[in-house]
Design a protein around this nucleic acid. Structure first.
Length: 566
RNA sequence: UGGGGCGUAGCCAAGCGGUAAGGCAGCGGGUUUUGAUCCCGUCAUGCGAAGGUUCGAAUCCUUCCGCCCCAGCCA
């Protein structure tokens, strides 16, 4: 049931989901010749893990069935949109590993056509300019259980509507003073059909069309027709748009569009211990609870990238969670599994001591340095070996030494032995303490002839710990991240989601000691710091001679459970 | 109390009338110079509930219960 992907991470072979079933059926029955989908983000924020699901779905099925997928910016509301977001979205989609068909599309590229179609509706007596203010319109709309009332302007003549719409377009009417509405049914049980607004006045400069327009089409009026223009066959969106489908179909049926795209809905992704709403993510950025949209703790694609998550792991995650119509909350542990799975298979190994404790080898010459060789990966010989300088003084992690411990502790203990990863077995003789009683140095001895061999006296070490030479290493900062929220569902039950922020989501360690080969690390490229976790160089904070590593994710840690039990 | 959806294990999710796949998490064990990886085993007499149809129901019918979405000139 499982197969291995090109780069080795574990991919599960899954039965097809309902979207794939629909596409296969439409292809088989000849309803469509080529699948055309589209990913239609509004450029009003950065993409997050939920968008990744949509991207993988839209681009994924198009590729699977030999079709194409467009990248279209749904930019009908200039008040919230900007080029910064356009650029970040292009970067994120590319990084995720997908290629959009031909050039980038913008809904705003179709504003002329959309305007013509609005005129077409007016001429057919199917749209009218309504003078109701937003507040009045709300009253006229009725409620969930009561029908709405017709606008006093509902029966304006075609001529009058044409003239008023022209004035709207010419900027002669004030924002909010009127709108163009589709004439459908104010008593419809589906509120979206109660004469929805299709054009509104916004005297705002548009990031893509500049000052050409002061009226902008609504999402409902733009989306389906844009799909039709592009020849999109299957317009896949999330569940909250289900109630809009009758409206989507109404425009397609009542306008001279070149194609008849169909809308299908799937459940959006929810992840526990995470927020995936642009509003909340924006708030975290604006109020500086995080360093920006690409803060490594953010569930944005750019944040995860900077954190060290790989595109492959995100794609695998999206494959594993499936595509259905039922609301669900995926355990963030599933995401973490996918990240570890990919990184384990592909990240070169290295050693870095996070909290250094000096070890002096009393039987090792002071001026001697051995150049040991270590594999780049325990089960991959295609990854380059590295050189480890070994010297009289070393650093090990403070957590890896105890003066005394029970049998479960498999690290260095006074009077006992431990294996230094890829090097000698050593035995600890003495703990040197400062005035506060803290261990500041350990005096130990190497056991001769133990590189790649067990000790000749038959006394095997209890465990293996990592180390770095004190003579040659790279001092660096390490940033340890934990989940951004302490609650499974931040903001649940009407509480303030900011109250759920984990105050310890970032811990900065300075003075960590990295092995010299890490001097060649490139930003965002993954390493496993053995026994610690996966790390990558931070793309913002790192400088030549002042390296900063982000912990992407820790190794699975069964010791944590054992040590807590005792 | 209008309309539209959805309920299969702690989580995700197959199943579409023939007797509950798979993954994550968990638990138990094995290998191991990473307490990692890897490997093996275990984990729903049960499919929101109750009736009914049937030789046989998670699948069909009825009723009920729960959860989600919709009253922006947002998308």
């Amino acid at each position: 049931m499982t197969e291995i992907t090109e780069n080795g991470s574990t991919k599960v072979e899954k039965p097809s989901h309902f979207i794939q079933n629909i596409l296969r059926k439409d292809l088989d029955e000849g309803k469509v010749e080529t699948i055309v989908t589209r990913f239609p983000p509004e450029p009003n924020g950065y993409l997050h893990i939920g968008h990744a699901k949509s991207i993988c779905l839209n681009f994924g099925v198009a590729k699977q069935f030999g079709g194409v997928c467009n990248l279209r910016f749904d930019d009908t509301n200039p008040e919230k949109e900007s080029d910064e977001y356009v650029e970040s979205i292009k970067r994120d989609v590319s990084w995720l590993g997908f290629e959009w068909h031909e050039e980038i599309r913008f809904t705003s590229d179709y504003f002329d056509q959309l305007h013509d179609w609005a005129l077409e509706l007016i001429k057919a007596g199917k749209a009218y300019v309504c003078d109701l203010s937003p507040d009045q319109a709300r009253e006229y709309r009725g409620t969930l259980t009561e029908p709405g009332k017709n606008s006093p302007n509902r029966d304006r003549s075609v001529a009058e509507n044409t003239e008023l719409f022209a004035k709207m377009r010419a900027g002669e009417l004030a924002e909010g003073s009127c709108s163009l509405r589709a004439k459908i049914d104010m008593a419809a049980p589906n509120i979206n059909l109660r004469d929805p607004v299709i054009y509104r006045i916004k005297k705002v400069r548009h990031h893509h069309t500049g000052d050409k327009w002061c009226i902008y089409p609504s999402y409902d009026f733009a989306h389906g027709q844009s799909d039709a223009i592009e020849g999109v066959t299957h317009s896949i969106c999330t569940l909250e748009f289900e109630d809009h489908r009758p409206l989507y179909e109404w425009f397609i049926a009542n306008l001279s569009v070149p194609a008849t795209p169909k809308q299908y809905e799937f459940a959006r992704l929810n992840l526990n211990y995470t927020v995936t709403s642009k509003r909340k993510l924006r708030q975290l950025v604006d109020e500086q609870h995080v360093d920006g949209w690409d803060d490594p703790r953010m569930p944005t694609i750019s944040g995860m990238r900077r954190r060290g998550y790989t595109a492959q792991s995100l794609r695998n995650f999206c494959d594993r969670i499936g595509v259905t119509r039922s609301d669900s909350v995926v355990d963030v542990g599933m995401l973490e599994y996918c990240v570890r799975d990919d990184l384990d298979k592909n990240a070169p190994r290295a050693m870095c001591v996070l909290r250094p404790l000096k070890v002096t080898l009393t039987n090792y010459p002071e001026d001697k340095i051995e150049r040991l060789r270590a594999p780049g990966h325990p089960n991959r010989d295609d990854l380059a070996e590295r050189e480890l300088p070994f010297s009289q003084t070393l650093f090990i992690d403070v957590e890896d030494f105890r003066e005394e411990a029970n049998k479960k502790y498999k690290r260095l203990v006074l009077g006992k032995r431990v294996r230094l990863r890829n090097a000698y077995v050593i035995e600890a003789d003495e703990a040197v303490k400062n005035d506060a009683g803290e261990v500041v140095e350990v005096k130990a001895r190497i056991i001769e002839n133990t590189i790649g061999e067990d000790p000749e006296d038959g006394v095997k070490p209890k465990g293996v710990i990592h180390w770095v030479s004190a003579a040659e290493n790279i001092e660096c900062d390490v940033r340890l991240y934990d989940r951004l929220f302490n609650e499974e569902s931040p903001g649940a039950g009407g509480s303030d989601f900011l109250q759920a922020i984990n105050p310890d989501s970032l811990q900065v360690l300075s003075g960590a000691k990295a092995e010299v080969s890490l001097g060649e690390a490139k930003p965002e490229s993954a390493y496993q710091f053995e026994r610690e976790g996966y790390f990558c160089l931070d793309s913002h904070y790192s400088r030549d001679g002042a390296l900063v590593f982000n912990r992407t994710i820790g190794l699975r840690d069964s010791w944590a459970k054992i040590s807590q039990q005792n």
